[in-house]
């Protein structure tokens, strides 16, 4: 297995593990961390494919993805804190009402 295939495989497995965590865990903080895992898997494949094409455009995209992840972290964690404040729980199944 060469470097490109190996790293694409590693990226695919990391993404799958993150998706598994989002689907089967009920703790919203753990779900959030699994989303970060999926973003990292996408970053890894971006860097490998960028190298395969011989440019550093993919490295720049990874920079943008990290900026999006930082914004997502600030808003997502604020949402989790609001959830805890309103329901005294951060289990995803406990917030099932849309009314305020």
């Amino acid at each position: 297995m060469d470097v490109i295939s190996g790293y694409l495989f590693l990226s695919a497995m990391l993404f799958t593990i993150g998706a598994l965590g989002v689907l089967i865990r009920k703790n919203t903080i753990v779900m959030f961390m699994c989303v970060e895992l999926m973003l990292n898997a996408a970053n890894l494949s971006l860097v490998v494919l960028s190298n395969a094409w011989g440019t550093n455009d993919g490295h720049v995209y990874v920079f943008f993805v990290m900026a999006v992840a930082a914004a997502e972290a600030s808003v997502g964690l604020a949402i989790i804190i609001t959830l805890f404040r309103n329901f005294y729980s951060i289990r995803s199944g406990d917030a099932y009402l849309l009314q305020g």
Binding site: M1, L8, S11, A12, F15
Partner: peptide
């Protein structure tokens, strides 16, 4: 998804 992604990753190159 793991099977599909793994297949695509190995054969996609």
């Amino acid at each position: 998804a793991a099977v599909v992604f793994g297949y695509v990753a190995i054969s996609g190159r």
